[in-house]
Design a protein around this nucleic acid. Structure first.
Lengths: 210, 210
DNA sequence: TAAGATAGGGAACGATCGTTCTCAACGTCA
DNA sequence: TGACGTTGAGAACGATCGTTCCCTATCTTA
């Protein structure tokens, strides 16, 4: 065999490629970054990049997949260091606050990818949906463990905080969302809340709803 | 003057151009739509398009500006048909639910534009921020009029519902956000107290803290 | 050492982008 | 009527995209 590429080097090169692509795609947008720029940043020849991934779309999906694993892993590690179930839910928003304050924070990579490619790449759309579903399920599990039945609003507050912090460039939404979650966790759980919803909704419905 | 273009026709052509561009940009993404496609869809010659807007970026900004006026105008019209201040806040989410259910709904046009061009076009970024600020201020005014001081979470729930409904393709987040707002409006966070607030507070005192 | 397979560097390709230019057609005024 | 100014239709331009191909250097094995 005349090729001296070890298995380990192969793995390292692939990681370097994903590192470079992820940074560029997140910083400047996916369509704004050409493959030649990925080549220059990764140090790998174009030929090898296309042996790793047959097309740019595959590279994008791989970047999102790896980022999802790392992002949710970091979140879970932070959250599950907290023993109390109720505090765990709040820890999600402390972690978000730290993320928002990082230099170069530019909102949700998946939401951004959706805006760019959601209607033109089925594979990217599927990856974005997969990530959001997994994030939702993580939050739902932690909220359930806290003994309350308000998973949905906690997830929506997190999503709203991420998109708002990204666009505004201000990490404050993490604090606002956290404060709202404190309130929601302190309200009587599902049965009473639903009854209250029904009561208020019945007096306001003019149209819509389903 | 040899040019028979009336002032009125000029205005109509401009609207047709913005109509076509808005539809294409929202459906398929901004970068995915070429100027030649805008030309074909609008029926206007390319030369006239570039007399209206010197560059594609200017067209994009104009589309976002006009959509902002219409979008927030429609929202305000729906909300302010409701007399009761508290119901008005909930009416925001009824309007969102109707929007989410419309065919072709593809999330927030401004958030999508941010994902695509937020880091490469200062003008687009400014327009996106301007829209989000205006939407935030609208909600804050309605929430304040309802006599409670929880504007931020209501805004974040709306944002979370929009992005989630867009990505998932499911209009349910509007209902979930609405239910959460009902809870928040019934919480004595601002010191204002009425019968409903007292009732909910008295049954929820077991939780709380931090 | 000779032979051969593969790697990297980068040019090349076809497509498409935003934008400009050409040119014929036409309506208006001297 | 004839010259002019403006228009619409679309070709053309330069740049850039994702992707492929060529060529040479280099390393392995006989």
């Amino acid at each position: 065999m005349p090729a001296p590429i070890t298995e380990e080097q192969h793995r390292l090169d692939r990681e370097a490629l994903l590192d470079a692509a992820e940074r560029l795609f997140y910083e400047r947008g996916i369509q704004a970054v050409g493959m030649d720029e990925v080549r220059a940043a990764s140090g790998l020849p174009l030929k090898r990049i296309y042996r790793f991934f047959a097309a740019k779309e595959d590279l994008v999906v791989a970047v999102l997949k790896r980022r999802d694993r790392r992002w949710r892993g970091d979140l879970a590690a932070h959250v599950e260091r907290v023993p109390d179930p109720r505090e765990r839910v709040l820890a999600v928003f402390d972690w978000l606050a730290e993320w928002f304050a990082q230099p170069g924070f530019r909102g949700c990579a998946w939401a951004n990818a959706y805006g760019e490619l959601g209607s033109s790449s089925e594979a990217v759309l599927a990856e974005v949906r997969s990530h959001k579903q997994a994030f939702h399920d993580q939050i739902a599990a932690w909220v359930r463990a806290a003994g309350v039945a308000v998973a949905e609003p906690v997830f929506l507050l997190a999503e709203g905080a991420i998109v708002t912090a990204g666009i505004s460039g201000d990490p404050a939404p993490a604090r606002h969302a956290r404060a709202a979650v404190v309130t929601l966790l302190a309200t009587p759980s599902s049965g009473t809340a639903d009854a209250l919803t029904e009561l208020t909704a019945s007096t306001s419905m003019d149209a819509s709803l389903n």
